[in-house]
C-alpha cells in the first residue's frame, strides 16, 4: 500500500514537473512576456473606459500593439495601430508613432491576442516606451483576450482601419 502511495506521488510530481517545464520553455513566458510589466503599471478595462469618457483633449493616447488582422476586426475607439511589438517592424512603428509625444504623456498599450501571461507583444512594447523615456505608460490588463475582456463586456469598439 505504501509503495502504491509512493508511486502515485511520484507520478503526480512527474506530471507537475512536466507541466512546469512546458510552461517555462514557452517563449512568451520569458523576459519579453507581459508578466514583466509591473503590477502598478497595469490598467483595468473599466478604468480606461472611465478615462476615455472623462478625458477630452489631453487624455490618454492608446496604441494596439497586436496583429493588424485583429485590429481590423475590432479595436478601442481612437486607438492607433502600432503592430505586433514582438517583431522588429512593430517596435519600429511604435517608436515612430510616439516620437511626437511628450515624455509625460499618458500612453496606454493593449494587445489581447492571447492570455495575459502568454502575450508576446505587451512586454516588448512597454520596455521600449520606458527605454525611450516615457514616464507615464500603462498596459491595459486583458486577462484572457480582447474579445472576452473588452468586447464581450460591451465596452466601445471601432472596426476597420
Amino acid at each position: 500500500m505504501r509503495q502504491l502511495l509512493k508511486c502515485f506521488v511520484f507520478v503526480m510530481f512527474a506530471g507537475f514537473a512536466g507541466g512546469m517545464q512546458a510552461q517555462f520553455s514557452n517563449p512568451a513566458s520569458g523576459p519579453g512576456s507581459a508578466s514583466t510589466v509591473p503590477q502598478s503599471q497595469l490598467m483595468q478595462p473599466t478604468e480606461l473606459v472611465k478615462l476615455m469618457k472623462s478625458s477630452g483633449p489631453g487624455g490618454p493616447v492608446i496604441f494596439q500593439v497586436g496583429s493588424y488582422v485583429m485590429f481590423q476586426q475590432a479595436h478601442i475607439p481612437n486607438s492607433g495601430y502600432a503592430g505586433p511589438t514582438s517583431q522588429a517592424n512593430g517596435l519600429i512603428l511604435l517608436k515612430k508613432l510616439v516620437a511626437p509625444l511628450k515624455k509625460d504623456q499618458l500612453i496606454v498599450i493593449y494587445c489581447g491576442c492571447c492570455p495575459w501571461g502568454k502575450c508576446p507583444n505587451i512586454g516588448p512594447a512597454y520596455k521600449q516606451l520606458r527605454d525611450l523615456g516615457f514616464t507615464n505608460v500603462k498596459a491595459l490588463y486583458l486577462a484572457k483576450n480582447f474579445g472576452d475582456d473588452w468586447m464581450s463586456k460591451g465596452f466601445p469598439v471601432e472596426r476597420g482601419e
Partner: peptide, 16 residues
C-alpha cells in the same frame, strides 16, 4: 491566411 472578414464570419477571432 486569414483576415478580418474570415474572423468576423466566425464571430470575431479576437484571441487565439
Amino acid at each position: 491566411m486569414g483576415d478580418a472578414r474570415l474572423g468576423e464570419a466566425y464571430g470575431g477571432v479576437l484571441g487565439l
